[in-house]
Computed example of a mutant assay.
Amino acid sequence: MAAQYDILTYLLDKQNIHDTVARLPQTLNLDLKSSEGLIKDVYAPDVVIDYTSMFGGKPMETTSEAWVKSLEPMMEGLDSTQHVVTTNTKDRRNEVIELPQPANGVARPDKAKVVAQVNGHMLRRAARGKPFMHNGGRYHLELVRLPELEKKGENPWRIKVQATVLGWEDGSSDVMAVFSGIGH
């Protein structure tokens, strides 16, 4: 029997999706370089990562573990980072979550889409020129609900597709040289 998709389930799904997205860039995982947190709390087992707007190349289809392990040397190459998912003025939330409204005959979704504004600030003292790079843009995310996590009473929503769309950047491009392998 399918889970009932009522107002409380809809609101719980939205909050769980919000929590998963917040765990991606914030100090809980990326900025504290928590590989375990990214694998356990953020990404689905298989992922598509798309940084083509920043680095060219093509989107990568891989496992969350392989993706996160590939980030480790890049993140270690930076002295400090701060990623911020910004708040929009409409609803004071960090992102726009696309879920169907609960209604008679509407099944509980297994997938959701999220668009979020994001800013990144990176410091690499060894970079040529200035040691800072600042950029901003959007995350276009697709999340999936993992029933096995839900059965254990955990947040079941994980990121399956992460596309980062660069809107602007300012600073030394040499700071980003540590990311030269992404998308190639």
Rank of each mutant, 00 (worst) to 15 (best):
H134F: 15
Q162E: 12
A22M: 04
E72P: 08
V178F: 01
W67V: 02
N155E: 04
D170W: 03
G57H: 08
L11W: 05
M176A: 07
Y43Q: 01
S34V: 01
S53L: 15
G57C: 07
Q162W: 11
F179I: 03
P100D: 14
L24M: 07
E61S: 09
S53M: 12
D6Y: 04
D110P: 10
I97Q: 00
P25G: 11
L78C: 09
D174N: 03
D19V: 13
R158V: 00
A22C: 14
Q4K: 15
P109G: 00
G181E: 12
D50W: 05
V84W: 12
Q162C: 08
T63F: 06
N155D: 04
E142Q: 15
V48W: 00
S64W: 01
N135W: 15
K90S: 13
T164Q: 13
A2Q: 12
A107E: 15
P156R: 02
L141P: 03
H184I: 15
F55R: 13
D79N: 15
I39C: 10
R128D: 14
S53Q: 11
A3F: 08
S172V: 08
Q117I: 15
V161C: 04
L78E: 02
E169S: 12
R92P: 07
V118G: 01
L78Q: 02
E65W: 01
V106A: 07
G181Y: 09
T89R: 15
W157Y: 06
